[in-house]
Amino acid sequence: MDAGLIPAELLQCAVVESRQVGAYRLISFVAPQIANLAHPGQFLMIRLAGSELDPLLPRPMGIHNVESDLVTMLIDPVGKGTARLAAAGIGDRVSVLGPLGMGFRLEGDAPAVLVGGGIGISPLKLLARALAAGGREVRCLLGFRTRKEAVATELFSGVRIDVITEDGSIGRLGLVSDPLPGCLAREPGKPAPEIFACGPSPMLAAIARIARECGNLAQVSVESHMACGIGSCQGCVIRGAGGYLRVCSDGPVFDVEDISWQ
């Protein structure tokens, strides 16, 4: 084990908020050390505290928001580990390592187009706030399967959003990437819009294609199974343009052209 790399921010924190937001679970805990350090697009390795061995490992979870001492995550309970975390109630303790990874780069003054698919909307909240605070124009395309998942758009009050659903039960019918090309034209006197995206890999591949065709910069946040979360085990790699990339420490946010999209 990489004993020299044990980070300082390994905490046990109390859950103080746990509520359903449509299909997702929103969970907040008190962690001033993490709230202070968190940068949009970074993640946590988190599990319920205790001796339970199944699920065994912490799960990587994007940071949805920070508000003074509070850190908030949004969970889609798709597997054993995420379902267990989503069942955490107020007063339960979580074991958290973070914040981890390289988040979104915020420099520049191009208008920002944020694209989120499903639970991939999670990190866009903190990102939208940070970009807006830096004086950038921000709009969000948020795509979901059905209106049940789309309830989560309520978390984006105060941001310009367009909602797209695959069944058309709310918002525009189709895929979240459909309206993207129409948002990418360069306006006079401004740089071409920059894309920031998080979501399932077919969605990110579509965005990579659109970004290339339209000539816009794009940063994408990708997912992978993880063990260490700190770059030492080499377990979380994806194919990059020039070899394997570690999602936990080289990412999870990458420039779109650094990833191999085959």
Partner: peptide, 27 residues
């Protein structure tokens, strides 16, 4: 972590899967 005479890129991803109270890896 183990080193070898020549550099090795490792195996194609995915390389990790959690199982019941266990972890499968193919680094």
């Amino acid at each position: 972590k183990t080193v070898t005479l020549k550099p090795r890129a490792g195996n194609p991803p995915p390389r990790l899967q959690e199982t019941a109270a266990g972890l499968l890896n193919s680094i």
